[in-house]
Amino acid sequence: MVYNAPAMIITKKKDFEEILFAIGDTRSLFLLGCGDCATLCKTGGEPELKEMSQKLVAKGIAVTGTAVVPAACHELDTKRVLRKHKDEVDKAQAVLALICGAGVQSVGDNTDKPAYSGCDSLFIGNSKRQLHYYEKCSACGECVLNDTAGLCPETRCPKSLLNGPCGGAVGGKCEVNSENLCVWIDIYNRLKKAGKLENLLLKISAPKDNSGLAKPQKLELKREPGR
């Protein structure tokens, strides 16, 4: 298999006990996974659905069927899969989705059954190799990478500082997590190499404008004629 390593929504499994508590007295479930991010994170692919089925059955909870949506954030995909498995979904009291939070809501918005979440969603992750994920962008709405030598201080500095480092780095490591390099020292090194240190010195970055970032955001593009 060619290893496919895209940026994606990183998830981790919820504790089984927490899931049992959430579903309460539900006695039958239909299980859904996602063929994209949750499969790669090993939280909601075929093997995890199988494992979850076994655990539920051992607790006396019936599993009426399982399916993997190709990409659960694609709502039409989710709807199509739910329709295809209509009989099994109908037989269940609820759906348990081993998918990111966006996917769980795709499910919930396209069925009358309650949709429970089996995962915690963590961040948008880059992967360097399988099962190693790193947060490098947090979709802040005003990308500053052009000023910061291509390294994101919004995400890779825990304080999201835009005007240079705090004084806390020790030995080049971040004061918050000594496993990480201080991103501002990295930015400094890159800018220095490129002879662009004045970017850091002269320009005082203005406070971020959060006014356009009220949640929930949406983007609805118009199709251009002829395309």
Binding site: K159, S160, L161, L162, N163, G164, C166, I204, S205, A206, P207, K208
Partner: peptide, 8 residues
Amino acid sequence: VYDLDAVQ
């Protein structure tokens, strides 16, 4: 929070 940084 860090809505503003020290410079700002």
